[in-house]
Simulated assay, not measured.
Amino acid sequence: MDLLTISLLISGIHLAVPIILPMLGGLISERSGVMNIGLEGMMLGGALAAVAVTFLTGSPWLGVLGACFSGVLSGAILALLTVTLRGNQVVASTAINLIGAGLTAALVPIIWGIDGTTPSVATVPPLVIPGLSDLPVVGELFGAMTVMDYGAILFAVAVWWVVFRTDTGLRIRACGESAESADAAGIAVVRTRFIAVTVSGVLAALGGAYLSIVALDAFQAGMSQGRGYLALAALVFGKWRVWPAVAACLVFGLADAFALRSQISMPGVPHDLLLALPYILALVALATFVGRSAAPAGVGKEFARA
């Protein structure tokens, strides 16, 4: 019972945010009809860019902008390969993952002259809102939240509103259901998909930046540790809807926080088994719901205007 505290909730949220952000990016991309399993590589690129820019400028806010630029670059590359050149979406996304993992690990010794982990950099500080941090029970929670934590909530609301409540979202979903029908209705399918995939890259990169300059203060090779794949699992579990997928991300984050704290309070349980808890939940979720999920009908299908 000592594990079930407000600090566990805080840790769970901090571990869920870097899953929520790439999940939102994946939702936008796949709702437009482009399968994006390259979220992991995009996260690593954003994490390294955030640390590199923060190291050079001393400002974590410029580091966040650096991560956004990295996301635009990786998202545009994936869009070029899959939307413009009509390459296989699974192969192209896998290439983004491999390049993201390999290139970021290779750049660390080139930039800093050391392997593995970069020097420490400035981090995004908590946002203290007068009055909220003084509230009983939940005050500690609000006192630990940063701009990026609140930003993840705002991004979730914005994605839900744009994709499911606006004409722009209707065009995105039309491209994901039937690109040919959308094209016949006058929708610019290629442009819509290109923008959607690029935006997904930015959101995934922000998830990586959260890991490197909010949760930690440095970049470590492979530091995303499969969170991009957890984001995809949450997306499938949530049936490509925002709030069920966000709930799945929170469950994964809380499971990760519980596993980390259990290493101290439950020394008899194997360490590796505890660390695998979020991924075990992801496998159970996929095995249970993947057959019942209704993916966009046109996801993974290339489009060539006749």
Results as ranks from 00 to 15, higher is better:
T5W: 08
T5F: 12
S7Q: 09
L8G: 00
L21A: 07
G25S: 02
G25L: 05
S29H: 11
G33W: 03
N36G: 08
E40P: 10
L44P: 01
G45Y: 10
A47G: 12
S59H: 06
W61I: 15
W61T: 05
G63W: 03
G66V: 01
F69Q: 04
L78P: 09
L78H: 13
A79Y: 13
A79N: 08
L80H: 11
L81Y: 03
L81T: 11
V83P: 04
G87L: 04
V91P: 06
V91C: 10
V91S: 03
A92E: 11
S93V: 04
S93W: 02
S93L: 00
I96C: 13
G100I: 09
A106G: 06
L107E: 00
I111T: 06
W112G: 03
G116F: 11
T117C: 05
T118W: 00
P119F: 13
V121I: 04
V124F: 00
P125C: 09
P126N: 05
L127D: 05
P136T: 10
L141T: 12
A144C: 11
A144S: 15
D149F: 00
A156I: 01
V162I: 15
V163Q: 13
F164W: 14
F164R: 06
R165F: 12
T166K: 11
I172H: 03
A174C: 09
A174T: 10
G176H: 13
E177K: 11
S178R: 01
E180W: 05
A188I: 05
R191N: 10
I195T: 09
V197C: 05
G201D: 15
V202F: 01
L203V: 06
L206N: 14
G207Q: 09
V214A: 03
A215Q: 15
F219N: 02
M223V: 10
S224Q: 13
G226W: 04
R227N: 07
Y229M: 09
L230C: 09
A231M: 07
W243M: 13
P244L: 04
A245K: 06
A247D: 14
A248L: 15
C249F: 10
C249D: 00
V251W: 03
G253I: 06
L254E: 03
A255I: 02
P270I: 06
L274R: 08
L281I: 15
L286Y: 08
V290M: 11
S293E: 13
A295R: 14
